[in-house]
Amino acid sequence: MAQAIVRNVRYAGMASCVPRRILSNIKDCPPQIRSARERIVRNIGIETRRICSEWQYFSDLAFDATERLLAELNWGRDEIDALIVVTQSPDYLIPGTAIILQNRLQLKPTTIAFDINLGCSAYAFGLHVLGAMMASGGIRKGMLLVGDKAASVIDPLFSDAGTATALEYDPDAPPMYFDLNSDGSGYEAIMLPAGGHREPYGLQHALPFKDDDGIWRSPSALVLDGPAVLSFSTQRVPPAVRNLLEFAQCPVADVDYFIFHQANKMINETIRKKLGLDPDKVPSTLHDFGNTSGASIPVTMTARIRDALLEGRKKVLMSGFGIGLSWGSCIVDIENAVFPELIES
């Protein structure tokens, strides 16, 4: 594990944007698989998901979230020194989406802008990268954009979302604590095998096939080893959270909210019970928003605890886990931050 403290950086605000289009895992599935889909919904806890329109991409959602956040913060575009995008849904293989958004947002040409390729654990990793860059004071204001376009009509798990988080250099800010980990031996557990240089797209990837459940699937679709992900998540995350609490010398009772990546109900409930956490301190958006990949932590904060975060200082432990395999957690004290209402685009 890699543990770290980021000092002198304030969590200034966050905005979340989801598509307007809502897809039901039961009502919008083929009739012949409805009973099977109902069982899946009971087990994973995801009934409705958000899916982009044909013209819409992750960068569009992130753009809308950033525009709203900048307006409510009353930050000038020429004040932004860094723009980091963490996504697995770039507009193009090259150049990076951050570069494109830097121009689209009309940020100054001297803005640092780059992408990080990460999914489920993206939020904690992204906060640390941007926060560590800012800690010395050379970068005064930075934006972290996290999310993915991962939804499909067929798959019952994933949703689309884009989020923007604002960090600001502040010598009086309380420290942020991090525990970040990676284990590449499990990289095949969540994988998009086609499309890279090792296996470029070919004709064989364009021909759908009928799976055992009667659904037509694409050979270029995401490969997800459910049992491996379940085992990894429930075995790795609880001790990592305990390690972080010990590192920060923070009792469980001092944490106001524990925000976990929204994987599925079975995984999240197992983690909560292993840690002995009060359900009221562990909000969930699985039922309404599904798995929004790296955006699931900020989306849950916006949709479930926004009012509480606006009331006064709150200590929030955030923990993401999945793709890589990787898992990262952080403890952040949030006070006087800006949280726009959920944006639908």
Results as ranks from 00 to 15, higher is better:
residue 166 A to C: 10
residue 206 A to D: 11
residue 102 Q to F: 00
residue 163 T to V: 07
residue 148 D to S: 02
residue 204 Q to S: 15
residue 123 Y to I: 03
residue 166 A to Y: 06
residue 206 A to F: 12
residue 143 M to V: 13
residue 170 D to E: 03
residue 181 N to T: 12
residue 138 G to Q: 07
residue 200 P to W: 00
residue 173 A to R: 06
residue 161 A to T: 07
residue 175 P to Y: 01
residue 105 L to C: 00
residue 197 H to E: 15
residue 112 I to L: 15
residue 183 D to V: 03
residue 135 A to R: 06
residue 140 R to D: 08
residue 100 I to C: 10
residue 136 S to M: 07
residue 116 I to K: 00
residue 158 F to P: 12
residue 213 D to Q: 14
residue 180 L to I: 13
residue 138 G to E: 04
residue 196 G to K: 04
residue 139 I to N: 09
residue 178 F to D: 04
residue 124 A to N: 02
residue 112 I to F: 14
residue 200 P to T: 06
residue 203 L to N: 14
residue 106 Q to Y: 11
residue 119 G to H: 09
residue 189 A to H: 12
residue 101 L to P: 04
residue 128 H to D: 02
residue 123 Y to L: 04
residue 174 P to L: 07
residue 142 G to H: 07
residue 118 L to E: 07
residue 142 G to D: 01
residue 186 G to N: 03
residue 146 V to E: 01
residue 147 G to H: 02
residue 193 P to L: 10
residue 198 R to P: 04
residue 111 T to S: 09
residue 203 L to M: 14
residue 133 M to W: 10
residue 215 I to K: 11
residue 109 P to C: 04
residue 123 Y to C: 03
residue 119 G to N: 08
residue 117 N to I: 13
residue 160 D to N: 04
residue 157 L to D: 13
residue 193 P to I: 06
residue 103 N to I: 08
residue 163 T to Q: 07
residue 127 L to E: 06
residue 126 G to F: 04
residue 198 R to C: 11
residue 190 I to A: 02
residue 180 L to D: 04
residue 151 A to T: 00
residue 143 M to R: 01
